[in-house]
Write a protein that binds this DNA or RNA. Structure first.
Length: 498
RNA sequence: GGUCGGGUGGCCGAGGGGUUAGGCUGAGCUCUGCAAAAGCUCCCACAGCGGUUCAAAUCCGCUCCCGACCUCCA
């Protein structure tokens, strides 16, 4: 299948045809979490975005190496010296070693990823595991003259860099304005310019996490790990680099400068940025106190939550918006998504229960054409900068067809078998492999539940045979009260549990 | 303040010069013992004011709101 995949590149600010450096291979990097606390739903939206990108690229035939880092080295929240190291701060709070904190929240992150159906990346490198690579990169940058040492710290010299290269293009920054805008009384500032950033930071011996370097004991600069690890596993230049919109500046801007400063080459061909998940219009973040943790979502235990929500409907909810738009997180939006999700799943189930049988009646060309068109459209939507929102809209159209076949409103044999198989393959691929929203959410002993329901429904069938509808309805109503919905269809009784 | 993005029907959310987004909600109908599910139909929106155009929600200008980044942040 020919795909004209277009990706919106944040650097050039336009959608461009995706042409990998070395097809069929694709190198993709996306910024992972700093593991000093639990990931929240906002974080998850970005990871989900790139999970779908990864899945789609593979689906259309690319061999993707997907690298997503774990930031497990603490970084000072500002370069001036008075910054806080989040991991160390947390370690003190929980009375644990920094590496215990890192372990704990890495595990938490992985659990959440699994629950939300995120594929593990090909490589998940850690910052602390690549201190050597980072030091080597610093050496290169120093050798090229784009960094300077002050008291055991190394700073990237943005002004110097700008004599030969561009800085600020990705985030649209003007360095002069940046410097002007940040005229704090920085008497103790070691940096030549406020725009310079640490690529190695000297720390005192009472800092728990610290490493030996040619410039003394210290910690690597935050931006450096991505540059070093991206280069190590994907090469000096690779295809896609993703991350949250909030990482554009300074993080990604600095990454570009570091790579160019070290190797004189633009590191990334397509920069992708996922937009923020908002709550009442404001960015969801820990510091604003408006964040939701996955566990709070499943249990419904959160002041702003009216009920509990299962992971797959939430994943679906996120995918219903385009990744470059903000998405507002509200109860009503979530509930609407929940219902839409259920609807899609009904069609999904129906599709896989349908058995194609040839009929004497001839096929209907218009019907065949319609189905084939839908199957083509879903892909076109995805090829247009991963427009999952539009792809889902097409999936709903397909769902309507499927339900009509199932109900016999349109006879299945109005389409030929090949078209039916195309519909089945396409729809299933999107639900299972691309959007990956098919995970079973049921809890408890499924086998026993099924047995039990079988018994109950058998009894109800007897009751109904006697036309004792009062008793029949009572069974149905009572089951509904505990979340089991009984549906009396044409060919038998079915039930669903929420 | 600087830079960037956005304001779409009751709600969420796509699109982005002319042609149906889609989902949820609501109303009606079909099917059904009744429900539910499913199907069909209806509710034709694009912040405001100007301008360009045969044609603007979509382009341009101005105004008003909102948000992100400029500190750590997905």
């Amino acid at each position: 299948m020919e795909h004209q995949l277009k990706i919106y590149d944040s650097l050039t600010r336009e959608k461009r045809l995706f042409v990998p450096l070395n097809p069929p291979f694709v190198g993709m990097y996306s910024c992972g979490p700093t593991v000093y606390n639990e990931v929240h739903l906002g974080n998850l939206r970005t990871f989900t975005t790139f999970d779908v990108v990864y899945r789609y690229l593979m689906h259309i035939g690319y061999k993707v190496r997907y690298v997503r880092n774990i930031t497990d080295a603490g970084h000072l929240t500002n370069d001036a010296g008075e910054g806080v190291d989040r991991i160390e701060e947390r370690a003190k709070l929980e009375r644990l070693e920094p590496m215990e904190i890192v372990r704990k929240y890495t595990d938490n992150f992985h659990d959440v990823c699994r629950i939300f159906n995120l594929l593990p990346p090909s490589i998940e490198p850690t910052a602390t595991g690549h201190i050597v690579e980072q030091i080597e990169m610093i050496k290169k940058i120093l050798a090229n003259g784009y960094a300077y040492e002050v008291n055991g710290s190394i700073y990237f010299d943005v002004r110097k860099f700008m004599q030969k290269y561009e800085y600020g293009k990705l985030s649209g920054r003007n360095v002069d304005e940046l410097i002007e805008g940040s005229r704090e009384l920085d008497g103790q500032e070691e940096k030549k310019n406020s725009v310079d950033f640490a690529i190695w930071k000297s720390v005192s011996p009472n800092h728990i996490q610290r490493w030996q370097s040619p410039w003394g004991e210290g910690i690597p600069g935050w931006h450096l790990e991505c540059s070093a690890m991206g280069t190590k596993y994907l090469g000096k230049q690779f295809d896609i680099h993703g991350g949250g919109m909030d990482l554009k500046f300074p993080h990604h801007e600095c990454e570009i400068a570091q790579s160019v400063g070290a190797d004189d080459i633009q590191p990334v061909r397509y920069w992708m940025h996922a937009n923020m998940l908002t709550v009442n219009g404001d960015k969801m973040s820990k510091s604003k106190g408006n964040s939701f943790l996955p566990m709070e979502l499943f249990t419904g235990k959160h002041a702003m939550l009216e009920k509990a929500y299962a992971p797959m409907p939430v994943r679906f909810f996120m995918l219903q918006a385009h990744y470059r738009s903000t998405l507002d997180f509200t109860n009503s939006a979530l509930q609407a998504a929940e219902k839409g999700y259920a609807r899609l799943m009904t069609a999904y189930k129906a599709l896989n229960e349908l058995v194609y049988t040839k009929a004497a009646a001839p096929t209907v060309p218009a019907e065949i054409e319609e189905v084939q068109k839908l199957c083509k459209e879903v892909y076109e939507k995805m090829d247009d900068d991963f427009n999952t929102a539009e792809a889902i809209a097409v999936l709903f159209e397909m769902g309507k067809k499927i339900n009509s076949y199932k109900e016999g409103l349109i006879t299945l044999s109005s389409i030929d078998e090949a078209t039916f198989n195309l519909l089945k393959t396409t729809f299933n691929a999107f639900i299972k492999d691309i959007l990956a929203i098919d995970k079973e959410d049921s809890t408890g002993d499924d086998g026993k539940e099924k047995e039990l329901m079988k018994v109950i429904l058998e009894l109800r069938k007897d009751v109904r045979a006697r036309k004792d509808f009062a008793a029949s309805d009572k069974i149905r109503d009572e089951l509904l009260k505990i979340g089991i919905q009984v549906k009396d269809g044409k060919d038998g009784v079915t039930w669903t549990m929420n």
